[in-house]
Simulated scan of single mutants.
Amino acid sequence: MDFNNSSLRYLHVEFNPLTEIMDENETNSTLGERNLSSCVQIRIPQELFLALGIVSLVENILVILAIIRNRNLHSPMYYFICCLAVSDMLVSVSNVVETIFMLLNDHGLLDVHPGMLRHLDNVIDVMICSSVVSSLSFLCTIAADRYITIFYALRYHSIMTTQRAVSIIAVVWLASVASSILFIVYHTDNAVIVCLVTFFCITLVFNAALYLHMFVLAHVHSRRITAFHKGRRQSTSMKGAITLTILLGVFILCWGPFFLHLILILACPTSPFCNCFFRNFNLFLILIICNSLIDPLIYAYRSQELRKTLQELVLCSWCFGM
């Protein structure tokens, strides 16, 4: 069994033969060898991957169950948040499955046919890629939802109906899975990396433009609203916008190094500095898993209704376990 090309943790090897490039550099360049040998490489134990993956998985399952259980959370915004939790859950599931396989392999407890292993790798890759595309898409969708809530408050329920929200969710998931399959099929083509990085940049610009417009004009807009109940709605909408701003900021911090990794694969695959960056890929994966772990905490902290439902679920689970 060869886990050297396994899934996301070795995605840089699959997208570009960096291992061969690094070997060639070490053979042909003494300076390159010295630079690579002086690289600081942070080693991450597999047990840490497994622990974080399990905690993240449990958290996101609780968020999904809480939104399903509480009828007060049955609104388009929380449907989109639920889908964002599902995207995070894909990262957790793929990480847990892959880590278990790697640990079993390391201890000589698993014997899997190479063909089956390749199929497993492809499934995990599709899950991870779907998570990236769907997370970015739902962040944009939530930003648009908050924008409509703030600037078209009186028409919000006619614009963002439940049926329309479900249609948007279906389109996002179909597009995410379809594009992920295409990305994995053509993973050896640099165009795949270009597409991912371009999509990442476009979504960031889109969200930044909406948030900037919301926060600059919301203050002016709120002055024109004198009725108490409408002022309250405005305050709630801005709270939702702030929550999603925090989510977007955490996403950029946690996924940023991964996308920088992809950019460097295109820009400087043979550079000793870039090769040093590539060698800490597992650290970037820990950040990605941390994003899946932090998001549910943000939901709970920013939403009193969701926090209350989560507490009830945890208490019921504990009592049932007793």
Rank of each mutant, 00 (worst) to 15 (best):
Ile159Glu: 13
Gly115Phe: 14
Ile68Met: 04
Ile181His: 06
Asn60Arg: 02
Ile100Glu: 15
Leu217Thr: 00
Trp255Pro: 00
Tyr147Ile: 06
Ser38Phe: 11
Val40Phe: 13
Leu65Cys: 07
Val250Cys: 07
Ser135His: 02
Cys316Glu: 13
Leu154Phe: 04
Met214Asp: 01
Gln311Val: 04
Pro76Val: 04
Thr198Cys: 11
Ile54Glu: 09
Ile64Ala: 05
Ala66Lys: 09
Ile81Pro: 00
Ala218Pro: 01
Asp111Ser: 13
Val55His: 02
Leu293Glu: 02
Cys319Gln: 14
Val205Lys: 05
Leu57His: 01
Ser56Val: 01
Tyr301Ile: 05
Leu212Lys: 00
Pro257His: 09
Cys276Val: 12
Cys290Gly: 01
Ile148Tyr: 10
Cys129Gly: 03
Phe320Gln: 05
Ala153Asn: 07
Gly53Ser: 05
Thr309His: 01
Arg279Gln: 15
Leu139Met: 14
Leu196Asn: 10
Asp2Met: 07
Glu33Ser: 03
Arg146Asp: 14
Leu262Cys: 06
Ile242Ala: 10
Gln304Pro: 00
Thr203Val: 15
Ala165Ser: 15
Ile286Met: 15
Leu174Val: 08
Leu196Ala: 10
Asn282Cys: 06
Asn105Glu: 15
Met116Lys: 06
Ser180Phe: 08
Leu8Lys: 03
Phe138Val: 15
Tyr211Pro: 00
Thr198Ala: 15
Ser87Gly: 13
Thr149Gln: 08
Ile64Arg: 04
Leu65Ser: 04
Arg164Asp: 01
Val250Tyr: 03
Ser180Gly: 06
Phe183Ala: 14
Ala170Ser: 13
Ala267Tyr: 07
Leu52Trp: 01
Gly321Trp: 11
Met102Asn: 11
Lys230Gly: 04
Tyr301Lys: 05
Pro269Trp: 14
Val220Asp: 10
Cys82Met: 15
Asp145Pro: 06
Val126Gly: 02
Asn28Val: 10
Tyr299Phe: 14
Ile61Val: 15
Gln311Arg: 09
Asp88Gly: 13
Ala66Cys: 08
Ile67Phe: 10
Leu84Phe: 12
Val314Asn: 02
Ser87Pro: 10
